[in-house]
């Protein structure tokens, strides 16, 4: 009897890329929900626009590159990329920010390098940084959902503002937008004044407008723990990044507590937690060896604090991740684990 020889059917692999991406999306939900509650519908609009634009760009590129559409569109990687990217954007920004950034991320940062698995740089961060450099003003349009006067935009009003730039009568843009805690600290730092008040307000302030960063960080921490529990990410990168942030910020704080914010402030503000669990852990662009992940995560943490304090942008996670992406081949090469039987030998 004749048979067709094929690769050996190893036992069922219940895992798949799609399943792993599904877990990431699920883990993003609590943070996304909290962001919508605290920052308004603009967050959801950003995410949706980014996802739709990203999927369209991916489909177009796959068609041009003569690759099958279905397996790549359905693996969920574009949705995760665009979702993470969308969450980085200012909630009061215009519609073309998520659309342009997402298309740039998918087309240039991902597909031009060969698609999923081949991109050396985190595409979401590439998209974000391109926007930050090209359109600095719209990228600062942050604000709480409920302004000091109690005004809030509903979904349709948010959509109107995003697409058409029209606010409901009686609501002014200045009343909505607000400087982020990192912005405030940066202003104080530049002015050379004491930053104590700015950091204190983050914890002492009772209003959501002041504490939204804290709540967001907690929600993303929850999602990150879910990913750790499901084995989608490893502990190395998040822990090393948080330690890196804490140590670097702690060092500066110890040097001059009046000029530099406390480690705790740096841990809970901005994109620290989000970056530690969802951005720096991107398997494709981060280090792939256990010790390499520690180096990678620590580097991202240290660079984040340095860029926040001495760079020209308020937050540094995106730049830190991209800079460490550059170092990944080197890190991976020099942190190969000792193989079976060679463990007692001197480490490379």
């Amino acid at each position: 009897m004749k048979f067709t020889p094929v690769a050996v059917p190893t036992p069922e692999t219940p895992n798949s890329v799609t399943r792993m991406m599904g877990w990431v999306l699920l883990a993003l939900l609590p943070g996304t929900a909290v962001a919508i509650v605290l920052l308004g519908w603009g967050v959801l609009i950003n995410v949706l626009l980014a996802v739709v634009a990203g999927l369209c760009a991916e489909a177009l590129m796959l068609r041009i590159r003569r690759r099958p559409l279905r397996p790549f569109l359905s693996d969920g990687s574009v949705i995760v990329l665009a979702w993470i990217f969308g969450l980085c954007l200012p909630n009061l920004g215009p519609w073309w920010l998520p659309v342009f950034g997402s298309v740039f991320a998918v087309v240039v940062a991902k597909q031009l390098y060969g698609g999923l698995g081949f991109n050396p740089f985190n595409p979401a961060m590439v998209g974000y940084v391109v926007l930050l450099i090209s359109f600095p003003e719209p990228m600062t349009r942050w604000g709480p959902a409920i302004d000091q006067g109690g005004a809030a935009l509903n979904f349709w009003q948010s959509l109107n503002w995003s697409i058409g730039g029209v606010l409901p009568s009686g609501v002014g843009f200045d009343g909505l937008s607000i400087a982020t805690p990192l912005d405030r600290v940066r202003e104080q730092f530049t002015a050379g004044s004491n930053i104590h008040d700015a950091t204190l307000s983050l914890f002492a302030g009772h209003s959501l407008s002041q504490a939204w960063n804290l709540w967001l960080s907690l929600a993303f921490l929850g999602g990150g723990l879910l990913l750790l529990w499901r084995g989608v990410i490893r502990w190395h990168i998040p822990l090393a990044m948080l330690v890196g942030v804490a140590l670097m910020a702690g060092f500066l704080w110890w040097l001059d507590p009046n000029r530099f914010a406390s480690p705790l402030f740096h841990l809970v503000t901005g994109a620290t937690v989000f970056g530690a669990f969802f951005v720096a852990t991107d398997p494709v662009t981060s280090s792939t060896t256990p010790r390499g992940r520690l180096v990678f995560g620590f580097g991202v943490g240290v660079l984040t604090v340095l860029i926040r304090n001495f760079g020209s942008y308020p937050d540094g996670v995106a730049f830190a991740v991209l800079l460490m992406n550059l170092c990944v081949p080197l890190i991976d090469y020099y942190t190969q684990p000792a193989v079976f039987g060679h463990k007692t030998r001197a480490r490379r």
């Binding site: 094929v6 690769a7 059917p9 895992n15 798949s16 890329v17 792993m20 397996p71 693996d75 990687s77 698609g115 999923l116 698995g117 081949f118 084995g231 989608v232 490893r234 398997p283 494709v284 981060s286 792939t288 060896t289 991976d332 190969q336 684990p337 000792a338 193989v339 079976f340 463990k343």
Partner: peptide, 22 residues
């Protein structure tokens, strides 16, 4: 037996390798 997808470097293989390879 789904067709192979690109490697995303998730390193599940490295975690499972009995020879401690990558």
């Amino acid at each position: 037996e789904p067709p192979p997808a690109p490697c995303i470097r998730c390193s599940l293989c490295a975690d499972a390798c009995p020879a401690d390879l990558l």
